[in-house]
Nucleic acid binder design. Structure first.
Lengths: 156, 156
DNA sequence: CGCATATATTTGCCACGACAAAGATTGCAT
DNA sequence: ATGCAATCTTTGTCGTGGCAAATATATGCG
């Protein structure tokens, strides 16, 4: 009962494909629920999920430029530029042209930004605890591992 | 070794939160990779991932109106309206106001749409087979099950 | 030095998703 | 039958993501 249908389509076969039980569909759905939850929670702080992620990355020194943010968050740099512009307008971050390399614009989280950053881990964990209710620690670890394997399978 | 760190923050704790190994981050990342792959593949047919999903839903009779599509794909109905308009302009679907209930607009896939639909399962499976390389069937089943549990955990 | 190449950022354009408001139609309750 | 609530669709507005072009700066090479 665990035998693959055919060899070179294992384990996914177009002939028996049903979108409703496709892992792809379920991934999109689960990620959508998680995102929606976070969006709602951070909405109380008047920011979006994307803005919250950037704030955390900047605050934890995982990024200091829009290019860094694009790489870490795996999103388009042009989008990040505009996202940062919106946050700058709201006084959450500041731009500063680098003297060492004048192509670079360094980003800093303002005190107003920090006030939000401090609340984010709590919010993220609240959402995760809700969504992963019923998961043992081992299951979460296994889930994380599977996600990393999916991410790693990126060539050919 | 399976004991939770603390009771009410189990298994996610803000104090030890690091975005880089957050399951939320990994979910977003993995889904992003999967989506990007599909986007690239269906791009050859000159449609987007969202359009492909709608076509499949309509073709497999899992939806016949924009409201159906919004519910099944878990996205905003207003977005679907515009998405269908773009597809209608391209001759992939047709709108027909229902006689039985004139509020309803029934959607049909045109022959041009069907020509694309027939190629989609193959494309989806190709992407999945690439991304889930190294997964046993049991692992895929387990992954699917976990995703469904995440999706089901939606109240409080 | 002068020039090609690479890097960092910004901007334009389009597609998409969320939210809210508006318009049309239906159905139910009084 | 009238009127009100519910339902279906569309549209406006905003934030975001992907792609490509434009700009500015840096670096390396002759």
């Amino acid at each position: 009962m665990n035998a693959p249908a055919t060899d070179d389509t294992y384990p996914f076969d177009p002939a028996s494909y049903r979108i409703c039980d496709s892992v792809g569909y379920l991934m999109a759905r689960a990620k959508g629920e998680l995102s929606r939850d976070v969006e709602q929670e951070v909405g109380a702080l008047d920011i979006t999920h994307a803005q919250a992620s950037c704030l955390v990355m900047l605050a934890h020194d995982r990024a200091s430029t829009v290019t860094d943010l694009g790489r870490e968050l795996n999103t388009d740099i042009g989008s990040v530029t505009r996202l940062i512009s919106r946050m700058e307008k709201r006084g959450l971050v500041e731009r500063q042209r680098s003297d060492a390399d004048r192509r670079i614009v360094d980003l800093q989280v303002t005190p107003a930004g920090w006030a939000l950053v401090e609340q984010l881990p709590t919010i993220f964990c609240r959402v995760l605890n809700r969504r992963f209710r019923g998961f043992s620690e081992a299951e979460v670890a296994q889930f994380r591992d599977m996600l990393q394997r999916v991410i790693a399978n990126n060539s050919g």
